[in-house]
Amino acid sequence: MKKSLFQALLLILIFAGIFYGLSQVNWMKLFRVEKVTDALEKQLGDMVWSDMDKKSIESGPEYKKLDSVLNAICKGNGLNRDEIKLHLMEDAEVNAFALPDHHMVVYTGLIKEAKSNDEIAGVLAHEIAHMELKHVMKKLVKQIGYSILISITTGDAGGEVIKEVLGILTSSAYDRSLEKDADLKAVEYLKNAKLDVKAFADFLYRLGEENEGAVPLTWISTHPDPKERAKYILKEGQVTRD
């Protein structure tokens, strides 16, 4: 019996040892997974963006406001501002989303709904977090599939697939845990940039209350419960709501 127990333990140790040894190999680098995904993301970003039928507003007070908030977040967190392609679009919908290759789209409806720059900063920080944590490609790979994404870039897939990609990124939330990760990362960005975390929570809370109104609050309705999000954002930011 003792011998069998010793052998069982040894077998487990052999398995664990092989697993540990193989874990030390950088398979992702060996199989060039990250390099291929980065190249794919760049191509997809350009294709999806060029497929959007709305015109981007590149100047005016609303764009300047958005740009200054984005600059503040990037500066406070050592992020490369030039990497983020900011697009403001004329649309009453309260929405903002990230596309592959750091394209960030914000609708004018969201700017109008926000009462302060700090409220906008919360949304931008959340979208930057999705980009930096590579959530955009993770979501696309899971929902569309790696091979179909590659076939888009090689021209083998039709325009319908690009529209599907766009639909997924503009009007559906990420996995619940990814949304929470993005919220918590956003809090970190806001704190580093010395921006008001409470304003972000307040904005979510207010949008949650207004969700039944005439203007579609896509950014809220597609995401997890805004009040619950506001709670953990305040907790992470260690501030209290009035």
Binding site: L22, W27, H135, K142, Y174
Partner: peptide, 11 residues
Amino acid sequence: EDVEISNPYIA
């Protein structure tokens, strides 16, 4: 969406 291919997975 929150689980991806990683070195430990391949190992």
